[in-house]
Design a binder for these strands. Sequence first.
DNA 1: CTAGGATCTAGAGCCGACTCTAGGTCAACG
DNA 2: CGTTGACCTAGAGTCGGCTCTAGATCCTAG
Lengths: 127, 127
Amino acid sequence: MLSIGQVAERTGLSVHTLRFYEREGLLLTPVRRGPGGRRVYGEDDLEWLAMCVNLRATGMPLPEIRRYAELVRQGSGTEDERLRLLREHQERVREQIEALGASLERITRKVRAYSGQASCEPGGNGR
Amino acid sequence: MLSIGQVAERTGLSVHTLRFYEREGLLLTPVRRGPGGRRVYGEDDLEWLAMCVNLRATGMPLPEIRRYAELVRQGSGTEDERLRLLREHQERVREQIEALGASLERITRKVRAYSGQASCEPGGNGR
DNA sequence: CTAGGATCTAGAGCCGACTCTAGGTCAACG
DNA sequence: CGTTGACCTAGAGTCGGCTCTAGATCCTAG
């Protein structure tokens, strides 16, 4: 049973962001409240938030995470669609990684041209 | 000798973005103008823009690209710093790729749990 | 008591990177 | 000759994702 501050620490999100995500409907359930109306989080919330952090870290937009949360909330019967959603995202992330790798390589070529004993390439403008 | 529209096509940037980048000081020289004050781009501009696209694609912020452009404009003597800038960026991109890979793996685990003959993991909440 | 610190809500503000609008110029085509 | 269509400028608007503010509540320690 954790306070919002503790959850912030463990997830790496700010308390502001945690409240923001809640408003945005990213959580599976309206967060339970303790005395004085304070939020109380459980292990399950923490796990879910960790998943959200992963999805965000890989560039999934908030509306899509919300969609995923909705599916989970609706319970069994939506597994197929959840799986589809995740797999599509996986694919996008793989493409993202590939694209980054390709750009990185091009940059690396430029770096080599600079550090440049062999500034050989025609078109390798050292400028 | 290309018009802004042609450059947009070849770089994948919009004409709006090309003008925007120019205002932001990302280009090496104020773009030459043809009759009627129209922008005229050469091969060199195209090459530089391609580099900019690479840098952006790997997440370099505009101010840092501007910085790089400044160094290039200042001509020789700044090569060391250019190299440093690029290498730091390279490092960040590598980290970025690694982080993406790690997140992807975590997502993949969740996917496996879903498609899940073996929902074995303690903590693999299928929820 | 009281002062500090964490929390609460509703709502405003910010930042980066575009993206678009309005109003105008110009060349070419039918 | 008039109407497209590509281009021009200055400046406003958008969007996603936070991030912060103000003003209130509550708990704890000194």
